[in-house]
């Protein structure tokens, strides 16, 4: 157990150092993802390929198998139960962000859905107007104005940034499953945490099957598409959240280009 902690501490430290070094963002001022530096790009593309192969031969077939043996009804129960387990993480992070009301909603949802919702399988609280609102440590760091850093593809975990990596590690150690099994004998601890992780990963991959297949089919450069979409999606996390259009409010430079276009149509 001590070893586990030491490893985590080392990882967090490494990631934090990367964050503080990451002065350069992969986005310009209006939030449009920019071309990346060549060394980083060639590493990222290599790792992306590696992850893609693992996904193709291991994870995706398992996710398809899971879909084949379950009904949408069953999968929804599983997803609800998994989301319910993470409710305390959201409560914790909303608290850190000073969002006390949201934090309270997370805790109420946990209490209601864990009992009346049969271990979280049914979202009873949602039906009562207590809508789900997720928050992780990455969101908290964003609220605290910690810079995101460059896009990196992690082995197995996939697209990330230094900040999202720190967020992921902190979310993992504040996960109720992790905390609940800390004092358990290590064989039980392993079984529970591996089982939980496996179910979470498979359920998540199943939910993204159609979307990712579609993206890949229509894409001429899947890596760039994923990178661009990943970075844009993170735009809503920000300490200056007031200007919510900033990320996609690009300027066409319409006057100049319209003129060229007119010439083209005149041909």
């Amino acid at each position: 157990m001590c070893g586990k902690f030491r490893l985590l501490a080392a990882c967090s430290l490494m990631a934090l150092v990367t964050v503080s070094c990451a002065t350069q963002n992969d986005k310009n001022t209006s939030g449009i993802p920019q071309e990346e530096n060549e060394t980083l790009e060639s590493y990222n593309r290599g790792m992306f390929k590696f992850n893609y192969q693992i996904d193709k031969y291991v994870l995706k077939p398992v996710a398809k198998g899971y879909r084949a043996v379950t009904t949408p009804y069953v999968r929804e129960r599983v997803n609800n139960a998994l989301a319910n387990i993470k409710e305390p993480i959201s409560a914790f992070n909303h608290l850190l962000q000073g969002e006390f009301k949201e934090s309270g909603i997370n805790l109420s949802r946990l209490a209601i859905n864990s009992t009346l919702g049969l271990a979280g399988m049914y979202d009873v609280a949602g039906g009562w107007g207590l809508q789900q609102s997720k928050a992780g440590f990455d969101d908290t760091l964003a609220k605290w104005c910690v810079k995101d850093g460059p896009f990196i593809v992690l082995p197995l975990f996939g697209p990330a940034t230094p900040r999202s990596t720190v967020g992921m590690i902190v979310d993992a150690v504040t996960n109720p499953i992790y905390l609940a099994t800390l004092d358990a004998p290590s064989s039980t601890e392993d079984k529970v945490s591996y089982g939980y992780t496996a179910i979470s990963v498979i359920a998540f991959r199943e939910s993204t099957l159609d979307l990712l297949d579609d993206l890949e089919r229509n894409s001429v450069d899947f890596y760039t598409t994923m990178r661009s979409a990943f970075l844009q999606n993170r735009q809503n996390k920000g300490c200056l959240n007031g200007n919510e259009n900033a990320s996609y409010d690009f300027d066409f430079g319409y006057e100049e280009e319209d003129q060229i276009f007119d010439e083209m149509e005149a041909d």
């Binding site: 449009i32 993802p33 071309e35 894409s219 001429v220 450069d221 760039t224 598409t225 990178r227 661009s228 979409a229 844009q232 999606n233 993170r234 735009q235 809503n236 990320s247 996609y248 690009f250």
Partner: peptide
């Protein structure tokens, strides 16, 4: 002229993809 789903702009994504290609 653009549809933005969960902050992901279809036009910006395509622009990044096609110019890289």
């Amino acid at each position: 002229v653009d549809i933005i789903i969960e902050n992901v702009s279809l036009a910006i994504t395509a622009r990044n993809e096609y110019t890289a290609y």
